[in-house]
Amino acid sequence: MSSRPTPQQQAPAPGQGTSLAATKAAATGLWVLVGAGLAYGVSQTLLRVVQLFG
């Protein structure tokens, strides 16, 4: 879902489109970074857990 514009929001300020695209790119980059970080942390932890039942 994305934001539902109110009447006041219909006319974006100059440069807002560029800013929005940059923010979207940064947010996507953050999703990748936090996803990779969590995958690294979980995999490292599971390697240690193996020793408990190994």
């Binding site: 879902m1 994305s2 219909q10 974006p12 929005l20 970074l33």
Partner: peptide
């Protein structure tokens, strides 16, 4: 303040980045 077209799914990774 978010401009029109901003996706709310951009917010969780920003919050996660800080909490992680």
């Amino acid at each position: 303040v978010a401009p029109p077209g901003f996706s709310r799914w951009s917010i969780p990774p920003a919050a996660l980045a800080v909490h992680l």
